[in-house]
Design a protein around this nucleic acid. Structure first.
Length: 406
DNA sequence: TCTGGGGTCCTGCGGCTG
DNA sequence: TCTGCAGCCGCAGGACCC
């Protein structure tokens, strides 16, 4: 392996100002921290029943072939002795906020990618805290000391290589990829190591006879662009030579907010589907209000029993954060999808995109209309939910035993 | 094997507008 | 008034990531 996984490294980290910090098996790590008797035991976080998948697996469970995103039924067959823990998302979000605060104590240039990982640009911290590898070790020690969980750190000259480095030193490691060692590290890797190469793209590349990153690097960009499209082809050609000039962008605003849910068994009843749309619209609108956003576009996602997925979207005249508006648009989109009578759905989703700050939206909606009064009513519900939980107040149509609305 | 839920980004098409 | 064109935007779908 290129670089060092342990403190006291000898690799030259000059110019390696980008860190990628990735928590190790994050959800499982948090659960084990609070239940130390599970240390060293195969642990899986995920809903135990229904059509759920593995959210996170301990390294002991991974030894049995369990992977995240694997159907839970299969995971249980592979590792029947695993302890299965239902997820506690609120706890993970709270730990994530603490960990991000550790990162921001090192540098304000922190770009979270998910709850459990972030890029850091430490250019401005070098004089205060020392060379990059030393800062990486400081972060690892602080997170372990404060939160009782481990993380891995990739140190490189750009985001893409830093991310690959953190993957390669997992778990509980640190890896520096020096500027003059990038190609030696990168070129033997399989094409799937590149950002943007999943199952489909991997098949196209295999069809071109390309198996390693070096193969891609030595293929004319025009060939890649013919096979993959202009943007993806050019993107892969650049990555294969370690070129990635994307900057670390601190705390960027979300682009969309939504909610979706898979039914326990497929549903054909339009009334039940509309009821689910009502619930998801409420969740989506709450998410918008919590983020201080309003959305211009409502997207409905419908996944049929055979797994084909249909999306329908509509852009509203004015942005909204009101569940009633989201719901009525979602119902119109569902109707407009023109599904056959009796078409069975396994999943429905509602997403709001084209986000703008809510303050800007309110200025447009200040001309006294019904959405304003709906908004006030829903904000009052938010306040009650904040005190008594989200089940304390809900639409009458979602109370068990209430007749279905049509 | 049997596929969650939260997202982002890209492509291609069609309509609108200057 | 019609046509061609470019640019923009909305929309649908797909691929991908964690």
């Amino acid at each position: 392996m290129t670089g060092d996984r342990v403190p006291g490294r000898t690799r030259d980290d000059t110019g390696c100002h980008i860190l990628h910090v990735d928590m190790d098996a994050f959800y499982v790590g948090v659960e084990i921290r609070d239940r130390p008797e599970l240390t060293g035991v195969p642990v899986i976080v995920g809903a135990a029943s229904g059509r759920s998948v593995v959210l996170s697996a301990s390294y002991q469970a991974r030894a049995f072939g369990v992977r995240s995103a694997m159907p839970m039924m299969r995971a249980r067959r592979l590792c029947p002795q695993a302890v299965i823990i239902p997820p506690t998302h609120g706890l993970y979000a709270a730990v994530s906020r603490e960990v991000m605060a550790v990162f921001r104590s090192v540098t304000p240039e922190v770009e979270p990618l998910a709850l459990d990982e972030a890029f850091l640009d430490i250019s401005g911290a070098l004089r205060r805290l020392g060379p990059p590898a030393q800062i990486g070790e400081l972060i690892r020690a602080t997170v372990r000391g404060q939160q009782g969980i481990t993380c891995s750190v990739g140190v490189a000259t750009c985001k893409f290589i830093a991310k690959l480095a953190s993957i390669h030193c997992k778990p509980d490691g640190l890896l520096v990829i020096p500027a003059d060692g990038i190609l030696e590290f990168l070129h033997p890797l399989p094409v799937s190591a590149l950002w943007g190469v999943g199952e489909r793209t991997g098949r196209v590349l295999a069809g071109l006879g390309l198996r390693t990153v070096a193969d891609i690097a030595h293929t004319p960009p025009a060939t890649l662009e013919r096979g993959l499209g202009r943007a993806a082809g050019a993107h892969l050609a650049a990555l294969a030579w370690g070129r990635d000039d994307r900057k670390v962008v601190p705390g960027s605003l979300e682009k969309s907010i939504g909610a979706e849910e898979t039914f326990a068994s497929d549903v054909a009843d339009p009334a039940l589907i509309r009821r689910e749309l009502l619930r998801l619209s409420g969740r989506t609108a709450r998410g918008l209000r919590a983020a201080g956003c309003a959305a211009r576009t409502v997207v409905v996602k419908l996944r049929l029993a055979d797994f084909t997925t249909i999306t329908r979207s509509r852009t509203l005249p004015e942005p909204t954060d009101v569940a009633q508006q989201v719901y009525s648009t979602a119902c119109e989109l569902y109707a407009a999808a023109g599904l056959d009578a009796g078409a069975r759905l396994r999943l429905v989703g509602v997403r709001a995109s084209g986000l703008v700050p809510a303050a800007a939206a309110e200025a447009q909606l200040a001309f006294g209309d019904r959405p304003a009064s709906w908004r006030e009513a829903e904000r009052a519900v938010d306040r009650i939910a904040g005190r008594f939980g989200t089940d304390a107040v809900r639409p009458a149509a979602l109370v068990d035993g209430h007749p279905q609305q049509s």
